[in-house]
Design a protein around this nucleic acid. Structure first.
Length: 562
RNA sequence: GCGCCAGUAGCUCAGCUGGAUAGAGCAACGGAUUUCUAAUCCGUAGGUCCUAGGUUCGAAUCCUAGCUGGCGUACCA
């Protein structure tokens, strides 16, 4: 929708260029550097779209904005009048250009919705492009908790949005399945097994264990029961066995949360076994980016924009996690994708510079890699934060939260703030069925439309074909507003892709629902006036498609009844 | 010390790349239901946009300094 107007503007500028107008040429040159911005004004007196183009250009070429705007709009009108797109253009305020679109354009868009249905809003901005999105990647040493939930939903929804926008998306999960934590996990599991054999709890739970690490969570009891490994086996094998059990649980919890299945499970252990790690270290060494110092091997990441060098190989001969992460990202780029997106918790932000530095050092374009940092989540109950720590085992599982408030509410809570905003997950609010909980508001709009449809059928009515629906029947403020709102769906999807931020879709769906509820109260759909009924019914059904497509992307149910 | 995120209505937060009179929900107050679902709608009230400077036609938005809160800054994972 918005792109149609933008194209009209660009065509106008092209036409100006052909006229050889000197001023226009200057303008055109500047437009190379200025991105044409078209916004939907808050006040509809300012038209359907507005641009501040003239003011931006005026600044550069020192001509009065008003003159530039005037020049532009005569051309715009000339060129676009016959297309029945732009009805009127005005100059307002300090130099805004306001565009008024023919109402028919919105009606056409409504018909497009009714024709395309579940495909409406799909975009081709991602066609021929491949993107890898890594998310969750929680260590297989414990169940998912609330913080993982946010990353899981953001990654899941972002993947869906990219898919909807035409991208070839690989959803991936990276598994830290080696290293010391596997030993600790294995040791913990075996102690549990031993203790349970004697009908006791393991000793490390009660006595203070100086210098020894354990996973103290109660879940380890169940985990160890699911393991059939011989007690004589070493810690690491116990660790792998335990990790398998835990990973199974993680997968179950993710499915329960409505996260679509992952396309790729990447294993840290595999990166070592395949020789990938040795290879990237070798490459970096050949480039002179690895030095020995204080008994360890350091990656000179400070030469690649990081603020310090980082250890790859510790003085005890073990590799750090960063080393495998470098190999991991090298692998991602080797698969030939256009974009690599990682979703991490905000507590990992110090990691970005060193991984990007390594990516660059290995000859890839760091601009093709982006890291989305999810700010941390604070779980609140009765106005108090609930304390959490994975190691000590004091935390609330994601599954518990979903059981308590429901999948839709839990997902929506994570989606209703921007990813970089701190989030308080208030359990008391989540359980209320009020406007603190807007997921119901959106779903209710959908359910209402479904109900209208069944009444429509019960009354024995049949839908007219689209060409017989009269635009004039949709003329009140609420109807027009809703039509305009619906027509922005695809644009919103594209904004979500560009900003890598699913949040805008939730805001948009809430606006669609609000526009619908206002329309519903003001305009009765099924009446004795059959032409009005047909027109309004078409509008309601179009609304349903947009709501349903949006809810589907967010992984929320679209109930027929509430 | 350094870095990241934040500070906007009583509460929770929007405010997109600098734009027109700073918005929404909750809470408060007043109204709407013989009607396709009131989990709804309409209205009223509510503001030192943390502070101080700066940039310009124009700043909640950008820059600088400071204050407050959260997180990070490991040869942890």
């Amino acid at each position: 929708m918005i792109s149609i107007v933008k194209k009209a503007l660009l065509r106008t500028i092209e036409a100006l260029k052909k006229d050889g107008d000197e001023e226009a040429l200057l303008l055109l040159n500047d437009l190379g550097t200025i991105d044409i911005s078209l916004e939907v004004p808050k006040d509809d007196k300012h038209g359907d779209f507005a641009t501040n183009l003239a003011m931006l250009v005026a600044k550069k070429i020192k001509v009065r904005p008003h003159d530039i705007a005037k020049n532009l709009i005569t051309q715009v009108l000339d060129i676009n009048k016959k297309e029945e797109l732009i009805e009127k253009v005005e100059i307002a305020g300090p130099g805004f250009i306001n565009f008024f679109i023919f109402k028919k354009v919105y009606k056409d868009e409504m018909f497009r919705i009714l024709t395309k249905k579940e495909d409406y809003g799909k975009s081709d901005i991602g066609s021929e492009k491949k993107v890898r999105i890594e998310f969750v990647s929680a260590n297989p040493t414990g169940p998912l908790h609330v913080g993982h939930g946010r990353g899981a939903v953001i990654g899941d929804v972002l993947s869906s949005i990219f898919t909807f926008a035409g991208y070839d998306v690989v959803r991936e999960y990276y598994l830290n399945d080696r290293g010391n934590q596997m030993n600790i996990l294995g040791r913990t599991a075996r102690e549990w097994k031993k203790a349970l054999g004697q009908g006791e709890k393991p000793a490390f739970l009660t006595k203070s264990s100086e210098g020894e690490s354990w996973y103290k969570g109660a879940y380890m009891e169940d985990v160890s029961q699911g393991i059939q490994t011989n007690l004589e086996e070493e810690d690491f094998h116990w660790g792998l066995a335990a990790a398998d059990v835990i990973l199974e649980k993680i997968k179950n919890d993710l499915a329960y949360f409505g996260v679509k299945p992952f396309d790729a499970w990447l294993s840290e252990r595999h990166l070592y076994d395949s020789g990938d790690v040795a290879e990237v270290v070798d490459t970096l060494r050949k480039k002179g980016l690895i030095i020995k110092k204080e008994g360890a091997e350091w990656f000179l990441s400070s030469e690649m924009g990081d603020d310090a060098d980082r250890v790859l190989k510790k003085s005890n001969g073990e590799w750090t996690y960063l080393t495998a992460d470098i190999a991991l990202h090298d692998f991602k780029f080797q698969t030939g994708c256009d974009q690599v997106i990682d979703i991490w918790g905000a507590d990992h932000h110090g990691y970005i510079a060193r991984v990007k530095g390594a990516v660059q050092a290995l000859g890839h374009d760091p601009k093709q890699m982006s890291v989305i940092l999810c700010q941390l989540v604070r779980l609140m109950r009765s106005g108090e934060p609930v304390p959490m720590s994975t190691r000590s085992g004091e935390f609330i599982e994601l599954r518990t939260i979903i059981e308590e408030v429901g999948k839709d509410v839990a997902r929506f809570f994570f989606l209703m703030r921007k990813v970089d905003a701190h989030l308080d997950f208030d359990l008391d609010v989540a359980k209320k069925q009020s406007m603190d909980n807007p997921v119901y508001y959106i779903q209710y709009a959908h359910a209402r439309i479904c109900n209208i449809e069944s009444v429509f059928d019960e009354e024995g009515l049949t839908q007219s074909s689209l060409k017989d629906i009269l635009l004039e029947e949709l003329s009140c403020k609420e109807e027009v507003f809703l039509m305009k709102k619906l027509s922005r769906f695809q644009e919103v999807i594209e904004i979500c892709v560009i900003s890598q931020e699913p949040y805008y879709l939730t805001v948009y769906l809430r606006e669609v629902a609000a526009s619908f509820h206002s329309f519903y109260r003001k305009c009765r759909v099924i009446t004795s006036d059959s032409e009005k009924t047909q027109a309004r019914f078409a509008l309601a059904r179009a609304t349903k498609h947009v709501l349903k497509n949006g809810l589907e992307i967010l992984g929320l149910s679209a109930p027929l009844k509430m």
